[in-house]
Amino acid sequence: MDSFGSILAEAFGLILALDPDLVEIVGLSLKVTLSAVAISCLIGLPLGAAVGAFRFPGRIVLTVLLNAMMGLPPVVVGLTVYLMLSASGPFGALALLYTPTAMIIAQTILVTPIAAALTRQVVEDLNREYAEQFASLGVGPLGRISALLRDARFSLLTVALAGFGRAVAEVGAVMIVGGNINHVTRVMTTTIALETSKGNLQLALALGVVLLILSLIINAAVMAVRGTAQRAAYV
């Protein structure tokens, strides 16, 4: 077996040479993950904001549920989506199983509770400050939600980041519903799992490095935006 150093060197070689397989896998990973995060934010942000800003019957139950769902086991989500999309399942006719769309659905189910639960916390804190002023100005429910989401926008970047972190590193659900089919549904995490089991450590490690670099870049970008916003007293 090669030394760790030589494997790492080969891995960097693949990255620097922009190996077509590697680029394809990274591209699909980003497409699936970013789509899932975007859809999750579209659902989770307004949902979390509504739970954080309004008092209604069942609010506490919903809060507990959202918090609990943050820890959904990916394989269970994968299995459930698999059963729904399989030929004998209720959505079998859509023929979505083993497609990137199925992977986006599974990741959306995993990320939406994270987006909603974290948004609820952020919005609830902000609403505590704004509620009386909103009531005094006579701001309607939709106006409240949009104002709270807008004013919490920089904190919500961190929420989206947490969702991205969960989705991009996820392997169990996308493996089950995507099937890890070469050139179709093969993403970074599933490739790492497969190539490691095959002993092709160079590609696995190269993908691992890309995954880390991506996380680093996105985190740094969000921190920079937040820092700028903080200096302008928008946080």
């Binding site: 400050e129 704004y130 009386e132 002023q133 909103f134 100005l137 006579g138 701001v139 309607g140 106006g143 104002a147 004013d151 007293a233 928008y234 946080v235």
Partner: peptide, 21 residues
């Protein structure tokens, strides 16, 4: 209020928000 509650926006946007409401 005793402690002004201002949105995390510009002076102009704060006035604009209240009037829109």
């Amino acid at each position: 209020f005793q402690r002004p509650v201002l949105l995390r926006r510009s002076v102009l946007a704060n006035l604009s928000f209240a009037l829109s409401a």
